[in-house]
Amino acid sequence: MSTVIPATLRVAPDPTAPRLTRAVQGVDESGATIDLRVVEERPLTIYLNAREIVTAMTIGDHPEWLALGFLTNQGMLRASDRVSAVDYDAELDTVVVRTEIETDHEAKLARATRTSGCAVGTVFGDMMEGLAGLTLPATPLRVSDLRAMSVAINRTPSLYLEAGAIHGTCLCQGPDPLAYFEDVGRHNAVDKLAGWMRVTQTDPSDKTLYTTGRLTSEMVIKCALMGIPSLVSRSGFTAWGVEIAREVGLTVIGRLKGSRFVCLSGEERMVWDAP
């Protein structure tokens, strides 16, 4: 399969970056020696002002966007909070997000729970509270756009194609990919995207979030809180994720492979313009 970077893509994976993979030697099923590259993972500790929040295992690219997106998605940074600085220290593997006014996040830390997600995903109880009264825009989703975005993403040069063992998340507008992030955990990839959207002030109302990961409750909640009306995955669903999607009016598509897919929420917003 040929690879090409779509002209619309503003942020793309860099599978050639030497810091993201490591060369290792092994043997194949016949006992022959083989050389291949595997994905690196390293800890990144995120601070909000003087408070240590979390240490996440990540591939190490876009640490500032990851920190901003994580804090935003967890409700520790509101849209109205003014960020004065984001300081990344590569030697200490830390990011410090500083705000003009101290935030009140101690109560959130007390309610932190470990989820079933990979790469030490975390979720806070008040994320569900953020859904109260939330109604997403009823943006149509065209079947032809689904297929076009899937082809474009799958043909984009990526760490997945280079080394595997990684999740991808891509923000699309219609059939066009706009920003594509990867990480060892699907939550990290989504948080990088959220950070990029916050910095670039990207309007989410006409966008689609594509992910390679399964559509769990946390993925659905994050997408909804980001204001993105459509969520698409080549993987499957959880029952609670589907239930939440239906409550907030999120269009959810799963098991997208070739021309096949399953829609479990928002089918009334689908435009069936392809056979």
Rank of each mutant, 00 (worst) to 15 (best):
G125H: 07
P63S: 03
M226C: 10
V232Y: 02
L225W: 06
T58R: 01
S150N: 12
V86R: 06
A138T: 10
L71M: 08
T3R: 07
P275F: 14
L36D: 00
D61T: 09
A107S: 10
T94N: 09
S2R: 11
T212K: 05
A152K: 05
K192E: 06
H62L: 13
D126F: 08
I53E: 02
P18I: 03
H105R: 07
M128I: 09
R10D: 08
L250V: 04
T156Y: 04
A179I: 03
V252C: 01
L20E: 01
L178Q: 07
R186H: 15
Y180E: 05
L178T: 01
V184A: 02
E102H: 11
A132M: 11
Y180P: 04
G75K: 03
R19W: 13
R37F: 09
P63Q: 01
Y210M: 06
A239T: 12
R260P: 03
G26A: 13
I244F: 02
G117K: 04
Y180R: 08
P18K: 03
E52L: 07
E162C: 06
L92D: 14
A163H: 04
R255P: 01
T21E: 01
T115E: 05
R246K: 14
G258V: 07
A50Y: 14
M1L: 10
P43G: 08
T251E: 00
A23H: 09
E243I: 11
S30I: 06
R19Y: 13
G213E: 01
V151E: 11
Y180T: 05
V248K: 04
T202N: 04
E29N: 10
D126T: 10
A110D: 12
V95Y: 02
G168C: 04
D93C: 14
V248I: 14
D61C: 07
M197R: 04
R269W: 08
M57N: 02
R37H: 10
M226D: 02
I253D: 00
G236V: 05
S30Y: 11
M197G: 04
T58G: 00
R98Y: 15
L141H: 03
P275E: 15
L171N: 00
D176M: 13
I101M: 12
D14K: 07
Q173F: 12
T122I: 13
D176E: 15
V248Q: 04
E267W: 07
I101F: 13
G164T: 02
L48E: 10
M128Y: 10
D145T: 05
T238A: 11
E268I: 07
L134E: 01
T200V: 12
N154D: 12
E41T: 14
V4M: 10
R51H: 12
R142H: 10
V97Y: 00
L92E: 14
L134H: 02
M57P: 01
V83L: 12
V86C: 12
L68Y: 05
A239L: 10
T16D: 13
P15L: 10
C223V: 08
S84V: 03
I166C: 07
P140C: 09
A138M: 09
R114E: 14
E182W: 01
Y47C: 03
G69W: 03
A224L: 09
T139Q: 15
M197L: 11
F70I: 07
V151H: 11
K108E: 11
V4S: 11
Q25S: 13
W272E: 13
G195V: 06
V252G: 00
I5M: 08
D203Y: 07
L141V: 12
E100T: 14
N49D: 15
